[in-house]
Write a protein that binds this DNA or RNA. Structure first.
Lengths: 223, 223
DNA sequence: GCATTTATGATAGTAATACTATTATATTTG
DNA sequence: CAAATATAATAGTATTACTATCATAAATGC
């Protein structure tokens, strides 16, 4: 996959000026991810990012209209990337059950190596998604932003996996709840395992999280 | 239960001055909940709250050291209240399975009426918990705050329900994951049903959320 | 190769936030 | 009634999340 040099295309509604179109734009995203990982969403500012990349706050505002918009961009990039991996991982697999299994694995495992086929460090991006992505939709402007399509990539991924669920068990009444519960759940569990271990059962070295959600899926769908 | 007039006692580490000890303190919490519900966490400020209660920003700071501390107080109040309801609802019930079922119901149902046995509007508080509570622990200072015991009430509730899980199925390896997944999941689903319905399967008038998590629990524990 | 467009950088400025500090004025209590 | 305590009013600070303006550098078009 590393040799494909696919690039994730992001809709123009997620930026003012396409960051992929210039060196500065790529640097904003690349170093922006590193800095947000270090400081957390709240303490991250465009001013600090400007200093870090030897550029100017005002230049960054030409790419993203706000810090929130930058987060939304990252979240959509992440889901586009997951969608790509999902389509790739389930292509040519005959068994619907196997396709679902691969999907759940993909959605729940922690990304630990950077595929480095883009300027984005996927390991850090995933850490940010785990910790900060809910802030993209837990905002007073959700409804307005939902209308603008800010969460469409996420919804599309959920729908794809729902389709697999229904192939496996067409009678199942809660495919969306199941998949969004698993996605959000896995993000929480990854975070909890590092910071609030009393809320998990993660053991050193073992990937219990994937295991747990696979088991959950199997049992609730009677597989 | 309305006649009991129990009051939820909150540890002194969650405030500078006990808001329950004065009229002003109660008003801060009571109107603070209403205002945070209206504005959302980000736009909520102590200054605006001061105007609302005809008091002063500086007076509010004598009760809570920061906006974040106020949220942490509310989250702990919520979990103390849930814990009380949990203990009450499961007392004298012989069947472990039934205790677990009641617990899951309690953790996943949306609170729709105010028990009005305190100065706190529980319906609004629950809305705030659904929308804002994750911001209490998705912060760069989690580890420090966890050490200070900021999340202990939540962890205690999870542990109580875990104990029921293990009574029902002592071999089950992931009780904490299961319960924290259900709790966070139900909060997400409640929020999604109002703002991002594409991520749920909630039907008008039906409480599918409780139903889904009950089914999930039963199947994963082979009940 | 030079003019023109376009991108970037530097600087300044604004309203609001999240506080802290100080002082004044009520209110309670001993 | 004095002293202690709680609350209110005011001012001030550093930072945030921007917007606006102008200068300069780089790319492109003919």
């Amino acid at each position: 996959m590393n040799d494909l040099h696919i690039n994730i295309s992001i809709e123009s509604s997620f930026y003012c000026k396409d960051p992929e179109s210039t060196e500065l734009g790529k640097k904003i995203v690349q170093v922006g991810i590193e800095l947000m990982d270090q400081l957390g969403y709240e303490a991250f500012t465009f001013k600090k990012l400007g200093v870090e990349i030897n550029s100017n706050e005002s230049s960054i505002y030409r790419y993203f209209e706000s810090k929130h918009a930058f987060l939304v961009y990252l979240v959509n990039w992440y889901w586009s990337w997951i969608e790509y991996k999902l389509v790739f991982a389930t292509a040519n697999i005959v068994s619907a059950e196997e396709r679902l299994k691969k999907s759940i694995e993909l959605l729940t495992e922690e990304v630990k190596e950077d595929s480095s086929f883009t300027f984005i460090n996927e390991v850090l991006l995933c850490k940010i998604i785990n910790t900060e992505s809910s802030k993209a939709y837990y905002t007073i402007d959700v409804d307005k932003e939902n209308e603008k399509g800010f969460y469409k990539t996420y919804k599309r991924v959920v729908q794809r996996v729902c389709d697999f669920v229904l192939e496996v068990n067409p009678q199942f009444k809660y495919p969306h709840m199941l998949i969004s519960t698993i996605i959000e759940g896995a993000h929480h569990q990854n975070y909890f395992s590092k910071h609030l271990p009393a809320l998990t059962d993660v053991e050193e070295g073992k990937n219990n999280i994937v295991e747990f959600y696979l088991k959950l899926t199997k049992s609730v769908l009677s597989l």
